[in-house]
Amino acid sequence: MILEPLPPRILSVRRIPNADDAILRAYGADPLRHRSLGLITVDQDDPTYVALDECTKHAPVDVVFAKSFYAGAAHGSGPLSGEILGVIAASDPDEIDEGLRALVACLEHDACFYGADEAKKTAVFPHVIASLGHYLSAQAGLAVGEPMAYLVAPPMEGTLGFDAALKAADVTAVRIFPPPTETNFSAAWLTGSLEACEAAAVAFLETVVRVAAQPLDRR
C-alpha cells in the first residue's frame, strides 16, 4: 500500500538545565540570553526541522543548532545518533521542557516521511507548514507566520516533483537544495498562499509516486 506514514523514531531527548558557556557558544547559543539546552536526535531529519520550527511557536525557545548527519540514519555513528541533532536553547529549564513537549508532539502526530511505493523504499516528505515559526522563517528569509511547502524526495523523484509543484500552483521557490546533501535527498522550499502551497505539495507528491512507479521513461 502506497503513501503510508513512516513515523520518525525519536532516539534521544535530553536536557542541560545549566549549560557551560563554552558549550553554549559552540552550539550557537548566546550565554547572555541562554542558560538551558534541550537536545534531541531523530532518525528523520526533515520532520525534525519542521518540529523544531513548530516548537518555537509554543515556547520562548531558540533553535540554535540543527544539522543533518552524513549519509542518513542508516549510517549513524551510534545507536542514538540517527540523522539529526537538534538543540533548542532558552533562559530557563521550564521553557526547554515546554519546547521539547511541542517538538515531540509534532514529531509523533504531524511531520513524517511517507512511503511513495509499495515496498516503502522511496521516502517522500510533502509537508505544508501553514504558519512558519521563528526558526525556518529565518532560514528561508520569510516572515514569521507565512505558509511554506517543505518538499523532500530522493534526487530523481524530487527534481521532477519540484518542477511539477512549481507549475501546478502559484508558488515561488524560496530555496532548492539539489543533491548531494548530507543525507543525499533533494529538497525544496516553496511559498505562496496556503492553498497554493497545498496544491503544490499534492502535485509534488503525485509526481514522486508516478516516478517511483515508473522510473524508466524510455523512448
Binding site: 500500500m1 503513501l3 506514514p5
Partner: peptide
C-alpha cells in the same frame, strides 16, 4: 494534520482503498 489529510486524499485518488492507520 493538514499534510496527512492531503496525503490521504491523494492516496484515495491514486486508487489506494484502505484508509491510513490513524496517528
Amino acid at each position: 494534520s493538514r499534510t496527512r489529510q492531503l496525503v490521504e486524499e491523494l492516496r484515495r485518488q491514486l486508487g489506494g482503498a484502505a484508509p491510513l492507520p490513524p496517528p
